[in-house]
């Protein structure tokens, strides 16, 4: 096969691989769109959030803060902290992506979401294919924006869409990504510590609750792994 056919095939495989998660993000996207309308953003601004920011949690929190009259700077800072797990993702994918040409780094960097990371970080240097990664990222981007659009349209017609528990979809999605990975004690410890800390820190209203909890969970898993190594 010639290179462009191979690239197209890899792109298509990536698009298919992310399809279940792209569909699962529907309720979350609907929520992002409808909440923007509810907070008196224009339809364009609601869509702009998804098209430019492309980070569900940050979008929802920013909209909530706008509604409660928070200032620009505090929203921005919260957004920066809330999405700081992406720093970790970038660090983790550095061996794969930093060697790519600039336009690929910029493009795949922009598309680096939780879901993208969960799928692509399983690959090592040999398995990694940038066209596959682009298929994953771009499909998810398009799905996210389509569902946001649907949310904007529905939000203008159906009131109180956020009372439906649409946020459960993110739990179901992430559980589907996490559960198959919990095969050893260190990973189980990581998950339990992270779960406990995330609830505790959120109760304490830390703005860095999620990242702090995630880091502690990762540290706990890592320590556990090292202890296992010592004992053997």
């Amino acid at each position: 096969m010639n290179p462009s056919a191979l690239a197209r095939q890899a792109f298509l495989h990536g698009a298919i691989a992310i399809l279940p998660l792209s569909l699962a993000v529907a309720p979350w996207g609907l929520l992002a769109g409808s909440m923007a309308i509810e907070a008196n953003l224009s339809a364009w601004q609601g869509q702009g959030l998804s098209a430019i920011v492309f980070a569900g949690a940050a979008q929802l929190v920013a909209i909530g803060m706008l509604k409660s009259g928070a200032g620009l700077l505090s929203i921005l800072l919260t957004c920066l902290l809330l999405t700081s797990q992406h720093l970790l993702y970038g660090l983790s994918m550095r061996p794969l992506l930093a060697v790519q040409p600039l336009r690929w780094r910029l493009g795949l960097g922009f598309l680096l979401t939780d879901e993208f990371f969960a799928l692509i970080s399983q690959h090592d240097e040999r398995q990694f294919n940038r066209w596959y990664a682009l298929g994953v990222g771009l499909t998810f981007y398009i799905a996210w924006n389509l569902f946001t659009f649907a949310g904007i349209v529905l939000g203008q017609r159906i009131p109180n869409l956020q009372g439906l528990g649409l946020d459960f979809s993110i739990v179901a999605t992430f559980v589907a990504l996490i559960a198959p990975r919990v095969r050893d004690v260190p990973t189980a410890v990581c998950v339990l510590v992270s779960l406990f800390c995330s609830v505790l820190f959120s109760l304490w209203h830390w703005e860095t609750a999620l990242v702090a909890a995630g880091l502690l969970g990762m540290a706990a898993g890592f320590v556990c792994l090292k202890l296992q190594g010592v004992r053997r």
Partner: peptide, 30 residues
């Protein structure tokens, strides 16, 4: 920046650690 093998092992926990942290408050703090 160069990642040591320890750093890579630590980052290997990023998916379970971070995704769980995002779910925690949604589940227990509706």
């Amino acid at each position: 920046l160069r990642l040591s093998s320890n750093a890579r092992q630590f980052l290997g926990f990023a998916v379970p650690g971070m995704l769980t942290a995002i779910c925690g408050p949604i589940i227990f703090l509706p």
